[in-house]
Amino acid sequence: MSIFSFFRSAPRASAVQAKERLQIVMAHERAGRTGPDYLPMLQQELLAVIAKYIDIDQNKVEVKLDRGGDCSTLELNIELPAREAAAKALKESAKLAVAGNRPAAKDGDESDAVKLAAGGSLTNGGVKKRR
């Protein structure tokens, strides 16, 4: 350290940038890694159960898993077919949400029980639970 370095504004240490860049890219990669493992299977099985009772269009289904710090949500959006009796334009959407405090961690924590909370009818039965 020379006396001149006191007057110079120190450039941001490259190691700090390295750490920040790593944290950002790895948060993203870890999130992507947790999904594909069991999600497609879960989606298929959930749909199979629902399809047993309601005639649904397999293409009008959306499954989303968001992992947060202490609360993660599994969101299932299914567009229900308009009933013959009901008005033609009627569009129903079912929303099932399940939450648990899974750690936003590594691959393969399938062991967590997934509870589905579905209200009597499937219309807008959004449920969020915090354990």
């Binding site: 390295a18 790593l22 790895m26 870890r30 493992d37 590594k106 691959d107």
Partner: peptide, 16 residues
Amino acid sequence: VSSVRDSDRILGVLAS
């Protein structure tokens, strides 16, 4: 950076 990132990837492989 590249070594740390790859190590994280390997940790994921070990865990699955």
